[in-house]
Write a protein that binds this DNA or RNA. Structure first.
Lengths: 116, 116
DNA sequence: GACCTTCATTGACAAACGTCGATATAGACA
DNA sequence: TGTCTATATCGACGTTTGTCAATGAAGGTC
């Protein structure tokens, strides 16, 4: 699959008011939960962290397999989950795929947790 | 079980530096992931939201069943998950159990998502 | 063309999860 | 004591999830 292939990606831009401030409707709760669910796995959190802290702002997928100690297909699967959650984006260049974080989505999740 | 019964509760106080700032070790990633996993369900998010936005700062468990549209055992299960994640605390008074949010834990999760 | 490398997908499996009905526990009150 | 109510636990179930080996697809090099 080409990296640019359409993929249904979670969008938190319109969603949601901070959890502690206002009452959420069921739809917003479901949307938000999807975002947090993507963060709810240690391997994904490590991947996201590796990508987010990379000096260049992006990381080759090839450099993500060894640090998390999982098989290449497993890492690929988790990267897909992160992409579907809109937390990272991928860019194919030649043989390699480079991953970067999507700051807006992380910001949205952070806002959802803000103090009242 | 008494509400005060020891329960292994996740503690995020020492954990972790913001995801986008520093490299996380595997243990911190696992700890943090547990926190987010607890937020990764729409029913739990709704419960947390109902508790957090309550005027009195606490909500009777009896008032949490109807709004989320699940059975009483299911709600009880989710409340336990939230307690284990350290996101809410429970206080039994007479026949009723009152739930409040644990702000420090939510703050810790919010910090983990902070911009670099 | 043939071959190699990178990454995604498939298929299988065990473990974890969300859900509910039934039941247990504990407190209130007569 | 007995009964009623609120909440937790148990047991079972179907579904989802994380994982890997095997395979496929796409791009590079010769």
């Amino acid at each position: 699959m080409a990296v640019g292939t359409p993929l249904t990606v979670l969008d938190l831009d319109e969603c949601c008011t901070p959890l502690r401030r206002e009452v959420l409707d069921q739809t917003d709760a479901a949307t938000l939960a999807e975002g947090f669910k993507a963060l709810g796995d240690p391997v994904r959190l490590q991947l996201l962290n590796l990508i987010a802290t990379a000096d260049a702002g992006e990381v080759c997928a090839c450099d993500l397999v060894e640090p998390v100690g999982r098989s290449q297909p497993t890492v690929s699967h988790h990267l897909k989950v992160l992409r579907e959650a809109g937390l990272v984006t991928a860019a194919k260049r030649g043989t390699w795929v480079w991953y970067s974080v999507a700051p807006a989505q992380l910001d949205a999740l952070q806002r959802a947790l803000a103090r009242r």
